[in-house]
């Protein structure tokens, strides 16, 4: 674990910070998630410190100001991060478990199993993910488990393609053939022979899929089809405060900072994992 580049360290640190904040949200948030504490869109302490607050305001109790009905924005951002990160993590875990197991299975079995699975994935991927999610959510009740299920299933198609492509290369290796000749079962070949060797590209991809899930759940919530109020999440905060933009109130832009920093830090970590694994392969020849 020596020689971690500085960019990856920053990425790791920020990612850990976000996950810890999500985990300990009730301890860190100064106010409750739905608690009305002040007036509508009070300026933030940061704006006052920078001297860009509207005239007449010299002090504020709120680091990020208040939202469209006077709730503390910092608390909502912390709780919102918790929801967003939880949904995105759960969807990523689901898509990886399902996508990689089916991808390995298709590669190991080959033949018609591979054909049926691959063509079905091609079909699902030929419809844009957002459109497909909207079509499904138009008939399903929008709850968190259904959201996770829809996001995870749609995203597993992409993981399936990667896992299958990686596994097809591994499947022709001598040690897999040796395992076959020993008489190992398919499950053993998938989990004991292919999985350990396919792990690093999958882990790097996992970072990207997680970011995609964060962006996706934020988009759905922004469209009013994701996390339902009064629960907070980053996309929902934008939706609630968007009217303020026209009056020059930047409350709706705060989630942009959170999403962008989280996305960039996870990307930095994923890049490092990917580089490390590719250089390892280069070293092995």
């Amino acid at each position: 674990m020596k020689n971690i580049p500085i960019s990856a360290l920053i990425g790791l640190f920020l990612t850990a910070l976000y996950f810890l904040t999500a985990l300990f949200a009730p301890l860190l948030a100064p106010y409750g998630v739905a608690e009305v504490v002040g007036d509508v869109w009070e300026p933030s302490r940061i704006e006052i410190m920078l001297g860009i607050a509207p005239e007449g305001f010299t002090e504020s109790d709120y680091w990020l100001g208040t939202d469209n009905i006077g709730r503390d924005l910092l608390s909502r951002m912390i709780y919102g991060g918790r929801t967003t990160i939880f949904v995105a993590t759960a969807a990523t875990i689901l898509s990886f478990t399902l996508g990689s197991v089916l991808g390995f299975f298709a590669a190991v079995m080959g033949g018609w199993v591979d054909q049926v699975l691959s063509r079905f994935v091609d079909l699902v991927m030929s419809i844009p993910t957002l459109i497909f999610a909207l079509v499904v959510l138009s008939v399903m009740p929008v709850t968190i488990p259904i959201l996770i299920l829809v996001m995870g299933l749609l995203d597993s198609t992409r993981v399936f393609r990667l896992a299958r492509a990686v596994a097809v290369d591994i499947e022709v290796m001598d040690y897999v053939e040796a395992a076959r000749l020993r008489g190992e079962k398919t499950a053993w070949i998938i989990f004991r022979e292919i999985l350990p060797n396919a792990l690093s590209p999958l882990v790097a991809e996992m970072g990207l899929r997680f970011i995609f899930a964060v962006l996706f759940v934020s988009t759905l919530s922004f469209l009013g089809l994701g996390i339902q109020p009064p629960a907070a999440d980053w996309g929902g905060i934008v939706k609630e405060n968007k009217e303020g933009i026209v009056y020059g109130i930047p409350a709706a832009l705060i989630p942009a900072v959170a999403i962008a920093t989280l996305a960039i830090s996870v990307n930095l970590v994923a890049d490092w994992v990917l580089n490390r694994t590719t250089s390892l392969k280069g070293g092995r020849g």
Partner: peptide, 23 residues
């Protein structure tokens, strides 16, 4: 490009709306 991939479209929209249309 990394930065613009990391922000969802709708937030880029509001960011530009805030800067170009409102300010």
């Amino acid at each position: 490009t990394l930065a613009s991939i990391s922000i969802p479209e709708f937030l880029i929209g509001y960011l530009l709306m805030y800067l170009v249309a409102v300010k």
